[in-house]
Amino acid sequence: MLDLALTTLLSPVVLFFILGLLAALLRSSMSIPEAFAKGLAIYLMMAIGLKGGIAMSESPVTLAMIGVFAIAIALSFSLPAIAYGALRVTSKLSRIDAAATAAHYGSISIVTFVAATQLLASANIESSGYMVAVAAAMEAPAIITALFLASRGKQKSEPVAGSESGELFREVLLNASVVVLVGALIIGALIGTDGAKQISPFFVDPFQGVLCLFLLDMGLSAGRGLRHGWRQLDAAALGFGIYMPLISASLAAIASILLGLDTGDTTLLMVLSASASYIAVPAAMRLALPEAKPSIYLTLSLGITFPFNIAVGIPLYLTVAQWLQGGA
């Protein structure tokens, strides 16, 4: 476990994340241009989607695969209910703030997923290509649960002025991350290994370097969010950012045992369940629950849970997955 934690902490990706985090906490003026950061995000999602799609082109759809999708979607639907309950019991967050925060913890962080796949690759542990599709499938269900939780016991109110039917649907299912990830996955499945050779100089070789740049920006975002947002959270809410991923990962570990997943896929399902969204869900929440305070859910998901998962969570989940397979 200690070796694995050290390997993770000393990987260039995590070191650049820590650099960004420290720079923001120390109030450095360093910043990554906004448009460049968005370009990096699109590149990473294209690369990971293509990789998953190409791997899927070589393996047929099996009943076990469908089982993983079903369990993953069920986790995404149910984790917000646990998160909401925990927040309402332990913290002073309002019903709306707790529901909006809970949505983030049922959805996923694709960068945490990518960091986990890198650790698995460095440890020579294989994982299934279709786990990228599982990640995409876990993006949205949590939002539905959160909206249900927020509306409980509340009288039906008029729609917000200027709102349009279908706008939330578009934001949730057609946001940039879902379109790029699913689109690249399909393209990867269509082009297969032969087609991959044409694009690998751009999407495979520079991937690690681009990931370092992106994690530097994520560190800056996390640090700034933490610096400005922590005052709005009580100790119970801050603690939630650490214990909720552990609860989610534990449930995913139990599900993995039932599904008979190998070490790599167990780790990735735990990582997906433990990660919290900071791209798709915050945007959806501004439309669906505009009364919720973004500084609360973004500080928790980006400022606390993301760094925790990157530095501690991923090696911990891999260790648990290895232990479950009897290979610790």
């Binding site: 910043s31 990554i32 241009p33 906004e34 950061a37 995000a41 920006d217 994520m218 975002s221 700034r224 969010g225 400005h228 947002g229 709005q232 900071y278 791209i279 798709a280 869900v281 915050p282 945007a283 929440m285 501004r286 973004p294 500084s295 973004l298 980006l302």
Partner: peptide, 14 residues
């Protein structure tokens, strides 16, 4: 009581 800045979060939701 709080500051906001354009490039603070990846979602650009703020």
């Amino acid at each position: 009581g709080s500051y906001w800045q354009r490039d603070r979060d990846m979602s650009a939701s703020q």
